[in-house]
Design a protein around this nucleic acid. Structure first.
Lengths: 238, 238
DNA sequence: GCCTAGGTCCCGTTC
DNA sequence: GAACGGGGCCTAGGC
């Protein structure tokens, strides 16, 4: 529907949401949000999408991110407020509320989209882990993985194993160039294991990624941690 | 346009992109992506949005995140491949390519959206920082901020100052409940300053957030770091 | 429900 | 351009 009346839009959108359709509305609107934070957005023309799973998104002409949104699981309400289309999307835990009020409508649409297919993605963290487990010698000769996602008081370690000399080795994997945060994680895990295992146990920590930033490498060195270059696939940004 | 021909859609979309409009296309399509990772998505009905800033998004009926996308700065190309509408969005640094091929078209639309307004957001990290600087006594009596974003070899510190006894104090701020990563950051900064300043200089580290997880508190304690509960606004999730 | 870490994260800022 | 940290991050997986 192009340039629908507010009344007609309310009818059509309500029916579409009941049907489980994906709804889009474009027009001049204001947006208010309150919840984990709060925001207001003055009048402007935007594109709004409501999904049957409770997602709401308000897109402006710029940016990958919606200017305002509501995550899946929300309740969408559509009504006429002062003769104008109003969309209210709410949830609890946390309590959040998104209100879009339209002054002028450009278009309202409903789509019943049939989609059975799942995305097939490669080049992920999981692919990197597989590559390590498939051929642990890629880390170093004699490295033997013993567990993945091994729990420590500081969190779960990506790969836990031992080296040729029987020393404990902790691997922290990053699918792309590693930064200071990855070093921080690795250090926390190594620290935790040193406390947990016998005091005399040697624990090595290895950051595994296609590459690492200068600061990450400096932090590794300062903490006696190591780096091994390895990418999930046949990438080459080392 | 509802159920447009592929030929007509190519014409309309090309003209709209030249005009700087936001374009949406809904229909049965396949999607292929390669770049930082790579993915394929078999035939299904989805909603595609192309923005004049070079953003592309493919949305299914579920999820806040698009199933495939391209960030701002890309080049959109639209053409007829084997008589079918094809959208190719590419960029360099990194080299990335998104291809959407349509088998059937449900709708194609173009929107010239006028929007001058900026989002006004509150409850942010910045608001928390302001709150600290406004009344440093909220951290503790006698705390004096000396700098924000002070650089250290491990990164920039949120707030740098000194306590009533003249000891250096580092604050790491989190707008919402703090976890292990925040402790890792704080520790890196404190470590770096202890190395940088005179060896005898005492450096205290304080995590400032509305609340912290159990593990974060344990990590703080183990490292001799502190916690102060403070929220950006009048929140109350401590 | 909370916690934890990954993400093709995106995004702004700074160098 | 790379890098670093924040985000109303979102999302999947555990517990």
């Amino acid at each position: 529907m192009t340039h629908p009346s507010h009344e007609a839009a309310v009818e059509v959108i309500t029916a579409a949401l009941d049907r489980g359709d994906l709804v889009t509305v474009a027009g001049l609107c204001t947006v208010d949000y309150s919840g984990r934070a709060s925001s207001t957005l003055g009048p402007g023309e935007r594109h709004v999408m409501l999904k049957p799973d409770g997602t709401a998104m308000v897109h402006t002409v710029e940016g990958r991110q919606p200017v305002n949104w509501q995550p899946p699981g929300c309740e969408h309400e559509v009504d006429l407020a002062d003769g104008r289309l109003r969309i209210v999307s709410t949830r609890s835990t946390p309590e959040e509320r998104l209100v879009v009020e339209f002054e002028r409508l450009l278009q309202a649409s409903a789509f019943g989209l049939a989609d059975e297919e799942d995305l097939s993605l490669s080049g992920t963290h999981e692919d990197l882990k597989d590559r390590v487990l498939e051929d642990p010698g890629r880390i170093e000769p004699g490295f033997t993985p013993l567990a993945t996602e091994r729990e420590t008081p500081a969190g779960a370690v990506d790969v836990y194993g031992e080296d040729a000399d029987g020393r404990t080795v902790v691997l922290e994997l990053k699918r792309s160039r590693a930064g200071p945060d990855g070093v921080g994680q690795l250090e926390r895990y190594v620290d935790a294991l040193r406390r947990d295992l016998h005091a005399d146990a040697e624990v090595r920590g290895v950051l595994v990624a296609p590459s690492a930033t200068d600061r990450a490498r400096r932090l590794l060195a300062e903490r006696g941690l190591e780096f091994v270059s390895l990418a999930p696939d046949t990438d080459d940004d080392a």
